[in-house]
């Protein structure tokens, strides 16, 4: 690991000031960044520890929740308001990593974790455009059963590894940011991450030095039902092959509102807007759920090793929507 300067921020303004140099990075729980530094894939010359920043889980005047970026994954998953009003978020968090890692990992760090593509991690043995732009991608003709079927490019087929972010995408969460010059802005979490295109080394639309300060969950009607289902190679402590976060408002068989996001299939949490538009206002039947899944997956471009994900995603979308619809379907 390359030497670096360490400092601990007491608040947001302090953090942004301390991270003023180009080689500085924010440090949350360290569960991904420390590992990447040990492999010399990340080589920051300064780490600004933001885990001491104030910020809890608060009710917003609109009836939603405002969650500080330093809140640990466990604290978020166990919070009564999250468990009862946003079950998809609790479910997604406890589907990820291990209990030890969830006790360390922060909300902001979870969003900014990097892909677990094995070729990205193989620093000295493989080519990777995300690690070294222009180098080439060994996953394309390699072992890519875990890789993207939607929104990938010829330069990169890596997937975003977070479960929590998939739930946040389905919930229309908003990311609050503070920049180096003190500027404050917010953007939908679905706009935080970008597709790889020709620049897979750039994961997000954050400005240099910009800090995630909080995530806001908009209020949801009490009638909304939500859940998260993760399909993986073993039943625990594994990354998703495919995951589905879904929120459904259905009454008398009619879908009043629906939000669906997919994990394990793209470079970013994949909001399934095509499927949603097929369903919204229609009837919540199994046939409609299948048609919606097909509409979303029509754009899928698989490789030989991951073509199975299309059918897996289709079945998982349908199963989750049927579960949420219950007797209403």
């Amino acid at each position: 690991m390359r030497p670096f300067r360490y400092s601990r921020a007491v608040d947001v303004a302090d953090a942004v000031r301390l991270a003023g140099s180009p080689g500085a990075r924010y440090l949350g729980g360290g569960t991904n960044l420390v590992d990447l530094m040990r492999e010399t894939i990340e080589q920051p010359d300064a780490l600004v520890d933001v885990t001491a920043m104030p910020g809890e889980i608060e009710e917003t005047p609109e009836g939603g929740l405002l969650i500080g970026a330093a809140v640990r994954n466990t604290a978020l998953a166990e919070h009564p308001a999250v468990r009862t009003r946003y079950p998809v978020l609790s479910r997604a968090i406890v589907a990820g990593a291990s209990a030890q890692i969830r006790n360390m990992a922060t909300l902001g760090g979870n969003l900014l974790q990097r892909t677990r593509c094995a070729y990205f991690y193989d620093n000295h043995g493989s080519r990777c455009n995300k690690r070294q732009p222009g180098q080439g991608c060994d996953a394309l003709e390699g072992f890519h059963r875990n890789h993207a079927i939607l929104g990938a490019s010829a330069a990169c087929i890596a997937v975003h590894p977070s479960d929590m972010a998939v739930a946040l995408a389905a919930l229309d969460a908003v990311v609050h940011l503070q920049g180096r010059n003190g500027s404050v802005r917010s953007l939908p979490v679905t706009d935080l991450h970008r597709l790889p295109g020709e620049r897979p080394d750039v994961d997000t639309l954050l400005e240099p030095g910009e800090l995630i300060t909080a995530i806001e969950l908009p209020p949801l009607p009490a009638t909304l039902r939500s859940t998260y289902r993760k399909v993986r190679d073993r039943s625990s402590y594994a990354f998703a092959l495919v995951s589905v976060a879904a929120v459904l408002d259905i009454a008398d068989g009619e879908i009043r509102d629906v939000r669906i996001a997919l994990g394990g299939v793209a470079h970013k949490p994949w909001r399934a807007t095509r499927a949603e538009s097929v369903l919204r206002g229609g009837s919540g039947t199994a046939a409609a759920f299948a048609a919606a899944a097909d509409a979303e997956l029509a754009e899928a471009r698989p490789l030989p090793g991951n073509a199975f994900k299309i059918e897996l995603a289709r079945r998982t979308i349908v199963a989750v929507l049927r579960e949420l619809a219950g007797d209403s379907a």
Partner: peptide
């Protein structure tokens, strides 16, 4: 795995300086 203030964490991914 060790316990920090009673919570289990992975000490290999933890930088010691974070635990003042």
């Amino acid at each position: 795995t060790v316990l920090v203030d009673g919570e289990r964490i992975l000490s290999c991914l933890a930088l010691a300086v974070q635990f003042e």
